[in-house]
């Protein structure tokens, strides 16, 4: 079981080479940090003070997540997941995939693992981008000090893990519908619709029932505004498991496999 899953994963990993999803992850990871770097240079007079602050990384992470967490992160996840599931539909390759000696379970979960790994890649690039935002000014200008705060593993986990968990239901739902519908617009349309609904529902006390709202709630929680009625991480993981189970059942019971 395990060796064949590894082979399925290797195959799935190769398929995404040069795909739009890969470019989205690369560009998406550096997009906000790049803008943040420009903004920092624009505020050049305060650069030395900011880098000298013992909370410099917290400040940079907060500013970057402000733009990323509310809209761009779930939007990017919607796009990337839909693009990965579209690879087979667009290239008319489902029939070839299903005529190979692979268990359907392996196909389903290896594709999902590719998406999750790409998400991790995105987080790594995003963190690298933020790090560069902090040190590039110091590398370029002698009078600007290097950031006066060390980055610990715990700090990175605290900054990233809640956002990663908040994306899981979006990945789960987009994966579910992405595998069911050939038309890319169905997947993107449903995702955008749910995201808009989530943004509208942010102030609603029962907003936590909408699975696309958690990254916005994570950002608000990092600013001390949390929904007292629910543990959003438990809800996010619950929704993810639900969507993956439903998606798996629908996938293996599909009458036409390409």
């Amino acid at each position: 079981m395990i060796p064949s899953f590894v082979h399925s994963f290797q195959s799935e990993w190769l398929k995404k080479k040069r795909s739009a999803a890969v470019w989205l992850v690369m560009i998406g990871g550096f997009f906000i940090p790049a803008i943040m770097l420009i903004a920092r240079f624009n505020d050049f007079n305060n650069l030395a003070t900011h880098n000298g602050s013992p909370q410099v990384w917290e400040m940079l992470y907060k500013k970057c997540w402000q733009f990323m967490g509310l809209f761009l992160l779930p939007m990017g996840v919607i796009m990337a997941t839909s693009l990965i599931t579209q690879i087979e539909f667009r290239n008319n390759t489902w029939k070839q995939v299903h005529a190979t000696p692979q268990k359907l379970t392996n196909i389903f979960f290896s594709k999902l693992l590719v998406i999750l790994t790409m998400m991790m890649q995105f987080f790594i690039l995003f963190n690298l981008g933020i790090y560069l935002t902090g040190i590039i000014p110091a590398l370029l200008f002698k009078k600007i000090p290097f950031p006066n705060q060390s980055i610990t593993l715990m700090f990175l986990i605290k900054q990233n893990l809640p956002y990663f968990i908040s994306c899981l239901p979006v990945i789960g739902f987009q994966y579910l519908i992405g595998l069911q519908f050939k038309n890319f617009l169905v997947s993107i349309g449903a995702g955008l619709g749910l995201l808009v609904a989530a943004l509208i529902a942010i102030p609603w006390k029962f907003g936590y029932i909408i699975p696309y709202v958690y990254s916005a709630y994570t950002f608000l929680a990092s600013n001390g505004v949390s929904n007292p009625l629910a543990n959003i991480q438990v809800w996010a993981i619950g929704y993810f498991i639900l969507f993956i189970v439903v998606g798996y059942i629908l996938y293996i019971n599909r009458r036409e496999k390409g």
């Binding site: 190769l14 398929k15 690879i87 070839q96 005529a99 190979t100 390409g258």
Partner: peptide, 28 residues
């Protein structure tokens, strides 16, 4: 079993060798 059903099933963004490598990973 080897098969070709109807239209070609190829990954457009990959080269010929890369396309075959996708399947080589599965068939080992």
């Amino acid at each position: 079993v080897g098969s070709l059903i109807e239209t070609p099933s190829l990954y457009g963004q990959l080269t010929a060798v890369e396309n075959l490598t996708v399947w080589q990973s599965i068939y080992q």
